[in-house]
Design a binder for these strands. Structure first.
Lengths: 342, 342
DNA sequence: ATTGACTCCCAAAACGTTTTGGAATAGAAT
DNA sequence: ATTCTATTCCAAAACGTTTTGGGAGTCAAT
């Protein structure tokens, strides 16, 4: 089928060993032979069989990434951007990327285990960490290289990159409080997600800083989709004493909340303030443009990937973990100072 | 390091051959031996080394997908959904998915070639086909299995799934014309993309059906992002005689156009009609909700993946190519009948 | 006794590469 | 003549699996 080292060896009348070594530029091969071999390889259109190389070298130069998909209509812009970040970096460093899609749950761990045990990947990138994360538990205990985007409450320590969601949410809480809002709602996400936990916590603290206590009736939980943002925001607006500001746990839900408010005839940025978190590209172009917290997803993907590859190669990491300070992006969805109409 | 067939063989006192055959349930192994081997394998925590299997079997059970990324801030919800479609199907059929990210261009082809020649994947999924598509040319000529989402103008024939963009756009054109619009603009995409070509063509034809000629000053080109949709729509609205309807080549640009119109103080669905194409999840929740053409991206991914795997296994395809008839989703971005205010 | 059929097993080759541990030759130094 | 050093090469083992092509033993029919 395809041309192998053996074919080249036969053609140039040397051994397979010599051909291999010539191609790898070992210095126990004479310049003439090297020249000869290279030319033959070129002529015959040789490309190494990577599978064979991998078997021999006992490494795959591949990193694994398991996309947590939820149902068919899955499409968090977050992931395509993150994927682009790790994909481009991996390619640059000569690594392939093996992607699987898998809903979180029982089966998920098996997928990890299989890839680890049968040597399909050299390391993993973990995303959407959970407070108690069995994936991380497993990989830690197996001593398998991985880097996470996000922290966890597990005991083991491991390299990660994370954004300081707590800090970011505090920024937003302060912003809303400074605008004069008092009845503030929070559109939260499932608490088992580590980042959702931090965001809720940060928001509570931020309000507390300003002497406001987050009313627990004002906290509703959504599944991070726009659709659910719409639904949950609607239920908030249906309260007898509805909020004048809604902070959502992510941009997608905030966009849903904006639709919900507008459906009620409210003018977002005047009658009600709404904030997001992530600064996805859409946030800039929503109507009104969304005030949110910026998170450099592409760069984080890039960084996580680089850390993982260093770890695979046992190179020292500059730092075991990175906690980024996010920034507040003020657009128009909160408007000016809020004047209580009463 | 890890337990191999040899280890098991040693433990049970049989040959490696027998162990292998026992595990594969060959019937020239006695039931007792099978039992013995299976138990030992279980006990010792054996998992086959897939790399070795691949080398031996000369196939990888992996399919390749190269994501055409454009710059860092890349995030077409389209791709995450499509990826989920192929990923889930691949997993179900026991295939892995090797994903690369690569900007279209010179280098791109090398990435394909490398993966083909070094046996990294058994087949490819091609997406965003171009009128003249070197990837398809190459794979055709190399006789390598692939399935495309989209058609091309290349001579070779190959299996694909595509949506009838021409038909879909005609639907939209008719809809706008029926609403009474006369000055209609088209927010097109680079014509080298096959689907962009079809969409423009279909739109022109659709208007022609209604006796309207598409004015070439009313056709502007964008890069499919929301940001560019905003920019290009703004330039349309700046014309001395601006359009009363804008049809965008995809939803993302339509969303940008909505923002542009709203920034002008226009009420979308009353002062101006705007349409999209794709029906991404966001379209349902934009403000106003977007009238668009539905494209079942997840299912298409699923189908493409299944076709590819059949092709790899040389099973017959039910049909070499599938052309889906899309459907019109009428929401609120075109409003009711348009009354010319003059 | 020989043949045939059947059951259970295995040594060796193969997949394509890299690495190990020399071997062979030539020239220079002793 | 012998030893040493350099230079250039290669056979064989190794990575872990599957497949090929039998071998050995048993039992029954001839």
């Amino acid at each position: 089928m395809s041309v192998t080292l053996k074919d080249i060896a036969k053609k140039v009348g040397k051994s397979v060993t010599t051909v291999s070594r010539a191609l790898h530029d070992y210095d126990d091969v004479s310049p003439e032979t090297k020249e000869l071999v290279h030319r033959a390889a070129e002529d015959m259109g040789y490309t190494p069989n990577i599978i064979a190389q991998r078997l021999q070298k006992q490494r795959t130069d591949t990193i694994g990434f398991i996309l947590p998909t939820f149902g068919p209509r899955f499409s968090d812009p977050f992931f395509s951007e993150f994927l682009a970040g790790i994909g481009n970096k991996a390619a640059k460093l000569g690594y392939d990327l093996l992607v699987s899609t898998h809903p979180p749950g029982e089966e998920e761990l098996k997928t990890y285990r299989r890839k680890v045990q049968s040597y399909l990947v050299d390391g993993f990138i973990i995303v959407r960490t959970r407070r108690k994360d069995t994936r991380i538990e497993y990989l830690c205990q197996a001593g398998f290289p991985f880097v996470a985007f996000g922290r966890t409450e597990e005991a083991c320590d491991f390299p990660y990159v994370d954004e300081d969601s707590e800090y970011g949410m505090r920024l937003l809480a302060h912003h809303l409080a400074d605008l004069g809002h008092q009845r503030i709602a929070f559109l939260a996400a499932p608490e088992e997600l580590m980042f959702a936990h931090f965001r809720l916590k940060g928001f509570e603290e931020g309000l507390a800083d300003k002497g406001i206590q987050l009313d627990e009736k004002m906290v509703v939980f959504g599944d991070l989709t726009q659709r659910d943002g719409f639904r949950q925001a609607t239920s908030l607006l249906d309260l007898p004493d509805p909020p004048t500001a809604i902070a959502a746990c992510n941009d997608l839900m905030a966009l849903g909340a904006i639709s919900a408010a507008q459906k009620r005839g409210l003018i977002v940025g005047k009658d009600i303030a709404i904030t997001g978190f992530d600064n996805i590209p859409l946030a800039e172009h929503s109507h009104p443009p969304l005030t949110t917290i910026h998170q450099p997803i592409y760069q984080i993907g890039d960084m996580v990937c680089e850390m993982l590859i260093k770890r695979i190669n046992k190179e020292p990491l500059r730092s075991q973990s990175v906690l980024q300070k996010p920034t507040l992006v003020i657009r128009e969805s909160c408007g000016e100072k809020y004047i209580n109409p009463n």
